[in-house]
């Protein structure tokens, strides 16, 4: 399957403070799984920048990804214009496994830009209950998109969205929880020792994004043994009880 794509930027939305969603047009459309990511080459930089895929349209051969400006690379990327060409590797990573979840209730818990990969789930599954947390009002993103596609949406500004979600569990009775966000949030969620299976999507500094360099390690339990797995290949989604937090 082709992994390198020469794409065209066809739409740029400034969805929150310093936060953008780019729509890319692909010459050839690959099969994508919710929660997978892409790795964008930013002209003038040595390393690509990895971002979650948040939506796609197979018919029109488009893929959306979102990011917040964090450093020089993302700053440069945010200056791209509609019509520009971007060299992108995709789809990368394992993604959220939705097979066997048909008709099941999925609880989504997102913190900040952790909402981006979760949007790809809500767009592909009819029975989602979404809980999104943001540290400030100007950082709230994708509220409309989540509201339209979810059964229920709770947005928390400045508090702990994981607590909101925990309180709602007895009422919603989700079959599975998918979460993405800052490490302290995911850790707090895992420490709740919920009886429902929890899958977390993790982040790490990457070099290649496709498994060749071993730069994106995460300590994970594999058959009871501690292993360093690649977030870009065996991840970014891991079963929460397997993750060994730093």
């Amino acid at each position: 399957m082709q992994k390198q794509h020469t794409t065209k930027v066809i739409k740029i939305d400034n969805v929150a403070k310093d936060t953008f969603v780019f729509r890319l047009e692909l010459p050839k459309f690959p099969k994508i799984i919710p929660g997978q990511f892409l790795n964008v080459r930013v002209p003038g930089f040595t390393l690509r920048r990895p971002f979650a895929i948040c939506d796609w349209d197979e018919k029109n051969k488009t893929v959306d990804f979102g990011f917040t400006v964090r450093g020089d690379g993302t700053r440069a990327l945010s200056n791209a214009k509609v019509g520009d060409t971007l060299d992108v590797l995709l789809p990368l990573g394992n993604g959220f496994d939705l097979s066997g979840l048909k008709d099941k209730k999925i609880m989504l818990i997102g913190g900040g830009i952790g909402a981006f990969p979760l949007l790809s789930v809500v767009k592909n599954h009819a029975n989602c209950y979404s809980f999104l947390g943001f540290t400030a009002k100007e950082l709230v993103l994708l509220e409309k998109e989540f509201k339209t596609a979810s059964k229920e949406l709770v947005v928390n500004i400045g508090g702990f969205v994981t607590d909101d979600a925990e309180k709602a569990i007895p009422k919603i009775k989700p079959d599975v929880i998918f979460a993405c966000g800052p490490e302290p949030m995911l850790k707090a969620l895992c420490n709740k020792k919920l009886t429902i299976p929890v899958f977390v999507s993790l982040e790490q500094r990457m070099a290649c994004g496709f498994g060749a360099c071993l730069c994106c390690n995460q300590r994970v339990l594999v058959n009871g043994e501690e292993e360093n797995l690649r977030i870009c290949c065996e991840g970014p989604v891991f079963k929460s009880e397997d993750v060994i937090w730093s």
Partner: peptide, 11 residues
């Protein structure tokens, strides 16, 4: 060998 702790790379 398990290698070093994260993060392992930076531009």
């Amino acid at each position: 060998r398990q290698g070093n702790v994260a993060p392992r790379t930076v531009e």
